[in-house]
Structures are given as C-alpha cells and as structure tokens.
Amino acid sequence: MKSNRLEKAVFFTVLSLFLLVILFPFYWQFVTSIKSDEEIWKIPPSLFPQVTYWDNYVRIFKLHNFARYLWNSAMVASLTTIFSLIVGAFSAYALAKLKFRGKHLILSLVLSVSMFPPIAIAPSLFMTLKQMHMINTYWALILPYTTFALPLALWNLTAFFRQLPNELQEAARVDGCSFFQTFWKILLPLTAPGLFTTGILVFIAAWNEFLFALTFTTEDRMRTVPVGIALFPGEYTAPWGQIAAASVVVTIPLVLLVLAFQRRIVAGLTAGAVKG
C-alpha cells in the first residue's frame, strides 16, 4: 500500500516535470508576446508580465505582411493536402487491391523519397522550377510538398484500403463497374476516415515546411508563415515581441487541430510503424 502510494507520487512527479518541460516554452512565448518593448528587455525577465500589452499582435499585421503569409500558408497547405490525397489514394488503391507487376519496385521507390535529403534536391529543383517559371508561385511549393508527402499518404492509405474486404470489389465488378469506378464510387468513400487522418498529417507537414519555402519563394508577398517569421528581424532590429506574437498566432490553429483530432493523428502517425 505504502509503496503503491510512493510509486504514484513518483509517477505523477515525473509526469508533471515532463509536461512542464514540454509546455513551458509555449507559456514563455505567450508571456513574451504580451510584454511591452521595455519589459521584454528587463533583467531579470519577469515570469508574469506586469502589464498586458497587445500591440505586438497589431504590429505583425501592420508592419509585416503577416496576413498575406497566413493566406499563403493556408493555400499551399490545403492544396498540397488535396493533391496528395488524390494522387496518394489512386496509387494506394492500386497497390492494395489490384494485381500488377512492379509493385515492390514502386513501393521501394516511394519509400526512398522519404529518405531524400531536401537540401540535396533544392539546388537543382530550383533550377528546374526556374526554367518552368514557377519560382514565386504556389506551384513551386505545392509540387515538392506533394512529392514529399506521398510516402506518408501512400503508406497510410494503403493500410486503409487493405482493411476493406475484397468481396466488396468483386461484387462491384460483377455489377459491371470498371476498376476505376469500383475505386471511385465504392471503396474511396469507405476510406474517408483514412483520408481524413492522412489529410491532417499532410496539412501539418506542409504548413511547417521551411527549406523549400525559403528557397523557392524570393518575394515577400509569396512567403509562408515559417519563412516570414524567420525573416522578421529587420536589418537592424530584433522584434522579439512580434516574433513571439506571430508564433502564438501560428501555434493556435495547430493546437486546435491537435486537440480536436489527437486520436486520429496518433493513429495516423503510428500506423506505419506498428502493425496490428
């Protein structure tokens, strides 16, 4: 009984410490975002702001194109999600339900993409996109993001298609549906939960990407949020309050997404690695 209580105490202490370490940076960022310019540089820094000061939130929209960055990020991430789901679902269905030669090769090819170092592709992809006049367009980001999201999308969706009984497909075929119709009309609607889970993961990945976004967009009006924030500091000033405010603004939608769909996200994340 006593050891049990001790164990419980240890358990919750360790757990609280873990949570503290994980969440403290967010708290600190928030506190920084509502401090006045003077208070931000006060030494030692105050753990609680003396006066709440919301100007930083106004400034990020007034002094920077932050609204534009948000819009760019939302567009790029949504379109990437749609494309990856379409392209991914096509291939996943074929890989899971159809018989054809070269399956193994395709799987290894897709998998190898997840191992590509983005920087190894960036220079020559930049030149290709340049020749296609795509630099500073959404396409310059959507295409690479879709490619790099494919392993994830394929992996998850193939697992979902596999779970569907083969009898469904056979019945549809007997009714005269083509393979494509079977896929589009019968099986795809059934994988909606899988599409949703995969979609969230792809969206988050596209929303967060930095290297390609930094390299393939060179004009201010085309920047996404991560690049925008990274380039906030002016030539001469380090607006920490504004950086903090901007970080809070981008974190909020992600927190909401995570809170609402945590089970799905965890399921999607672990689907590939854990069988059964």
């Binding site: 379409i86 392209v87 991914g88 096509f90 291939s91 269905y93 074929a94 890989l95 159809l98 018989k99 054809f100 030669r101 395709i106 090819l109 897709v110 993409v113 590509f116 190894a120 592709i121 220079p123 020559s124 992809l125 030149m127 290709t128 295409l143 690479p144 879709t146 490619t147 790099f148 494919l150 394929l154 083509s178 393979f179 494509f180 896929f183």
Partner: peptide, 27 residues
C-alpha cells in the same frame, strides 16, 4: 486490372520522377 493499376500509380510516379529523381540525377 493491370492497366488500371498502372494508370492509377502513374501520377505518383510522375511527381516523384520530376520532383525527386530528376533533380538528383541532375545534381
């Protein structure tokens, strides 16, 4: 069946080819 399958995996292969494989070979 195989024909449909190849058609369905084609988009994936095309993007991967253009965005990942081609740049590596070009590098």
């Amino acid at each position: 069946e195989a024909k449909t399958a190849y058609l369905l995996v084609a988009p994936s292969l095309i993007v991967i080819g253009v965005i990942a494989l081609f740049p590596i070979l070009r590098s």
